[in-house]
Design a protein around this nucleic acid. Structure first.
Ligand SMILES: NC(=O)c1ccc[n+]([C@@H]2O[C@H](COP(=O)([O-])OP(=O)(O)OC[C@H]3O[C@@H](n4cnc5c(N)ncnc54)[C@H](O)[C@@H]3O)[C@@H](O)[C@H]2O)c1
Ligand SMILES: NC(=O)c1ccc[n+]([C@@H]2O[C@H](COP(=O)([O-])OP(=O)(O)OC[C@H]3O[C@@H](n4cnc5c(N)ncnc54)[C@H](O)[C@@H]3O)[C@@H](O)[C@H]2O)c1
Lengths: 230, 230
DNA sequence: GCGGGACTGTGAACGGTTTCACAGTGTGTG
DNA sequence: CACACACTGTGAAACCGTTCACAGTCCCGC
């Protein structure tokens, strides 16, 4: 009675476009932790600490010393036995691994609440992440200043990115528009998308998507806080 | 047999306060996926779909049918062989599992950019998540309206939460203030914290923390977009 | 220059999650 | 009413990431 065969067909075509298993040699959790290590190291550098052992990293990051060493071992040998790791040197290494050693331009789509928070976020700078352009489809907003930038028409994203050459994009538009924006970003040459909209994006296999889902995070917490009542 | 030798140095006071291994019966990835299933189901409901098979869920969520069934099997039997799952019934079940069936009040700390985006976010409502109070420490902001709420003094958080009884809190303050705010939230009875600040929070074992780290997400993407150049 | 102590790097064991495959079950049909 | 079908639920296997434990290296003091 309430079957939906036409949807099924449409979905099948798109199936090859579903976010793929990225055949990775390096575990994704390792990459996530590298960013944490980097933060600790930058703090340590600021505090004037020159050398850090894996034990000390455990104290500061909450990640086990063995895990830290194993994570780094995917990329090479950075420490000195008996001493530890040179803070400045390791910062450089991790930045290089994560490609944060050179400025990484980013396209932001959606000049709303989230976009607004992001465009003025001072912490990006320390990681050489830079929002290089902002796009929207609202003609009232297009042309207006937004942070240091001028809001551009999303229709021009490919054109604009031809000169910027950004490989990263952020989607901060309503869920209903997210897929269409994703398609435009991919078309414009973006290969990595940070998606704030509550939707599963379908992208070609060479494009990576990471979702920021606040509702999901709260839902997991909601489960936990109740669980422990019992 | 393999009794671990005493870890003298690591047995610091702080250590007992590091975010612990949550001894969970249900895998955390399962909980995260439940929120995704819920979103798909709510969409399906809105589209008038009454029944969904695990195959169809795979189409819409990108999560394998087997994974979907296994995830649900941690909590009971919700489907009918030969038919699939009743959309409205399964929504109710997942809401109950995640404790999203009753209104869940949340304390928000930090009336800045992020706080501003969150306080007006309409999508919380569908999940019965409600920001019940907003706190800040800036005397210029305290007393001002913020969304539908009035910004309260963070010093009064325990007092205010005595009447609200929130178990969830969101930290949207600068990293330098995050730990101190976390301590106050815990003191006020919060057991689950969503942390936007780039810091590792130290909390007692019964408190759960989840971090939203945009820089970390971008760093992982940064690695991936470069990797595929080679 | 030698020995003791500190710490790294990593193969191997472990534990947890995902995938597989199929037995079991409700549904619809002839 | 019986059979074919579609789909679920789940033990078992495969896979993957984490933890363990130790051999190897380097520094420092003497
Ligand atoms: N606000 C929050 O706290 C919050 C929390 C979690 C998730 N999100 C999600 O993040 C996304 C953005 O949220 P927000 O609060 O910033 O929304 P918003 O409504 O404030 O801003 C959305 C912006 O996107 C623009 N837009 C719409 N369609 C577009 C299109 N096709 N192309 C380009 N621009 C387009 C709009 O003009 C608007 O400026 C939403 O998907 C939302 O669900 C928001
Ligand atoms: N803006 C972004 O895009 C972004 C992105 C990722 C992470 N973050 C992180 O989220 C957090 C908040 O960011 P934001 O942009 O909203 O910052 P913000 O500066 O706009 O707002 C912070 C608010 O916290 C208040 N505050 C400071 N100390 C406090 C205390 N001890 N108790 C209570 N309130 C206090 C301030 O008065 C201010 O209103 C920061 O840790 C930031 O690093 C922000």
């Amino acid at each position: 009675m309430s079957n939906s065969p036409p949807i099924e067909q449409a979905d099948r075509l798109l199936d090859a476009f579903i976010t793929p298993m990225t055949e990775t040699r390096v575990p994704i959790p390792t990459l996530e932790r590298l960013a944490i290590y980097l933060r600790v190291l930058l703090d340590a550098l600021e505090a004037g600490i020159q050398t850090l052992s894996s034990q000390e990293m455990e104290q500061h990051s909450g990640i086990s010393a063995a895990q830290f060493r194993k994570d780094l071992s995917y990329f090479g040998e950075f420490g000195k036995p008996g001493v530890g790791y040179s803070v400045p040197a390791l910062i450089q290494c991790i930045e290089k691994i994560l490609r944060l050693d050179k400025e990484q331009p980013i396209l932001l789509v959606g000049a709303g609440n989230i976009g607004s928070a992001l465009v003025g976020y001072p912490n990006f700078q320390a990681h050489r992440l830079r929002i290089a352009a902002v796009f929207d489809n609202n003609f009232v907003k297009i042309g207006r200043p937004f942070g240091d930038l001028i809001i551009e028409d999303i229709a021009r994203v490919k054109e604009v990115n031809a000169s910027i050459g950004a490989r990263l994009g952020i989607i901060a538009v309503p869920a209903s528009a997210a897929q269409e924006v994703a398609d435009l970003l991919v078309e414009a040459g973006v290969r990595g998308i940070l998606n704030f909209a509550p939707t599963i994006l379908r992208v070609p296999p060479h494009v990576h998507v990471r979702n920021v889902s606040i509702v999901q995070e709260l839902a997991v917490l909601s489960y936990h806080v109740a669980e422990e009542t019992v």
